[in-house]
Design a protein around this nucleic acid. Sequence first.
DNA 1: GAATTCAGGTGGTATAGACATATAGATATC
DNA 2: GATATCTATATGTCTATACCACCTGAATTC
Lengths: 238, 238
Amino acid sequence: MIPIYLEIRSYMIKQIEKGRLVPGDKIPSERELVDLFKVSRMTVRHAIDQLVNDGILVRMVGKGTYVSSERLSTALNVLNSFSEDIIASGHSPSAKLISVEKTQTGNTISSLLRIDKSREVIKVERLRLVDGLEMAITTSFFPVSRALPLDELDFTATSIYRQIESLGLRIEKASETVTAEAADKRSAGFLRVKENSPLLKIIRLTFISNNVPIEYMEGLFRPDRYVISQELYRQGVR
Amino acid sequence: MIPIYLEIRSYMIKQIEKGRLVPGDKIPSERELVDLFKVSRMTVRHAIDQLVNDGILVRMVGKGTYVSSERLSTALNVLNSFSEDIIASGHSPSAKLISVEKTQTGNTISSLLRIDKSREVIKVERLRLVDGLEMAITTSFFPVSRALPLDELDFTATSIYRQIESLGLRIEKASETVTAEAADKRSAGFLRVKENSPLLKIIRLTFISNNVPIEYMEGLFRPDRYVISQELYRQGVR
DNA sequence: GAATTCAGGTGGTATAGACATATAGATATC
DNA sequence: GATATCTATATGTCTATACCACCTGAATTC
């Protein structure tokens, strides 16, 4: 069951995505939205609070609430799903589901996800391909909770991020750690490389609004088919 | 007249600043704060909402609200030399010069450095250590005579960046590619790892003003002693 | 015509209560 | 002793209402 305020939030985002609201437009007043959704004003405000916090809307006392015109942050470190990355580079991503299970997890992952370790998580293991060639194995852990109706997610589809976002949750940021690891027998089999060959290991913790973690992921990538690129800028003079 | 929720917010911040609440501590429950300030619970939540949004507090359903342990970094994509990175993380970097030679280079590197491949470059190979332990081998290529008096540089010193900057050149940015590679016999020997063990490979092209390339570097890092961390942010709506 | 007043709409703050869901520990059951 | 259930407490969602400060434009006054 998705909370009403997230429904309203989704609705607003869709209006903007579809172009029915463009930057600078005034959105319906809080009291109009109350009538539209048949909810209390506090609930409407809760939804708008989040969108304002995300910089999507701007409130003006006595005037109204408007779609933000400025897209703040020149977006250097852009968080994309792997599918989105692949598409952006002109290739075709796909995924094969290896396993899905509802399970518990150890101290490290549960504390990173900020859940009790007795809580269940959905563990999704997928083989990621680019242009039909094996690229990576990713193992994701999603905390089971009301806000995220995991049953409705299609893990064989490519972009889980997009699916989560279309549910009204806003993915905000991720922190990533990159290292190297030797392929064990199982990974080597899936990725069609020799055992012990070097793989790029990416560990990513993804957050929605309010710094709430929503996914812990470990990925093992074939270095010949996926590399990480980033631009670094020297900090001020001195 | 200051709103109550801002008073509560200030109160919490002061508690943290004075050290009466330290990261990891549980703050009073919402109902306790209601009693303490004699206000409604929604008002208390309003105050806490803001602090959670700022990343100062973390809410956990059924457990309580806690002072956030992670001080999210303000420095995003900061270009540091490896020495600077190591120092920032509280360790002690050093370097051993393996070789310096004036030579020519292949098409790839010369074109990245935007020089003719007949032009000479200085190739510097160094073993990088952290707290006296082998961490990486880096191979740098500097174009000869680009307002860069290479003779004056001390390649055994840790921070080449600092030396270059003290010559009046402003290092501006770098583009980095990260991948994984198996250790060959030579690298394995220097880094004291087994041959074919996985290493993190970082290729970095560094620029001074006007996008003039000044260094091409390839580094092979022991993944147990060096990892890359980065924060990624989701791009605006759509 | 220019200044003032006023009414209606907007977001801002705050209340008091209700029910839902998550956690942890005590208690009862097997 | 292990398992299940209950209970108290935590945050999460939502309602219905009230009054405030602010902005705008129309009506009123000068």
